[in-house]
């Protein structure tokens, strides 16, 4: 089953362990790094449909959401955190925490400093933790160790 959630996340169920590296590879090729829907990381950026599709929309919220994801991908953190973009004051994407607004919206100097710190950290951290496994590293861990075939003589085939 595939479930698309309110935050543009994909829940993909029923994948067998041995198929995981191929699934990671497919998703990486499509630019969807596994983990941003479930990990301790930046989750996918939630947006309303914005001025493209909504008669109340005043700004391109989906466009800003995509830009924000491209800037922040790979930020795996000690806790999940979420970013959302709303295109008008009706706030369909349910944006806004008072403390965050104070630090980011109202405090211009603080925002500039935090932005610089974030970009600096991303220089070292922005990588896909599944890329190596998708490329084949440790692929045997997803397979049987061996198989015992007692009927065809006492044969044993190592994986």
């Amino acid at each position: 089953m595939v479930k698309v959630t309110g935050g543009q996340r994909l829940d993909i169920f029923g994948i067998k362990k041995e198929d995981l590296p191929a699934v990671w590879a497919d998703r990486n090729a499509a630019g969807m790094v596994s983990g941003h829907a479930y990990a301790k990381a930046l989750r996918t950026v939630k947006t309303c449909v914005g001025s493209n599709w909504c008669r109340f929309g005043t700004q391109d919220s989906t466009g800003l959401g995509i830009k924000t994801e491209q800037m922040t991908w790979g930020s795996f953190m000690p806790h999940k955190f979420k970013i959302a973009v709303s295109g008008c004051p009706r706030n369909c994407a349910e944006v806004g925490l008072e403390y965050i607004k104070k630090r980011i919206v109202e405090d211009v100097e603080g925002r500039v400093a935090l932005t610089a710190r974030f970009h600096f950290s991303q220089r070292f951290m922005q990588d896909d933790p599944w890329a190596k496994r998708a490329a084949g590293e440790d692929y045997k861990l997803h397979q049987h160790l061996a198989e015992i075939r007692p009927l065809a003589a006492p044969a044993l085939v190592a994986a």
């Binding site: 861990l141 397979q143 049987h144 160790l145 061996a146 198989e147 015992i148 075939r149 007692p150 009927l151 065809a152």
Partner: peptide, 11 residues
């Protein structure tokens, strides 16, 4: 700290 499996044909 993990495990791997070993199928036995007919078992």
């Amino acid at each position: 700290l993990g495990a791997r499996t070993l199928p036995v044909r007919g078992g």
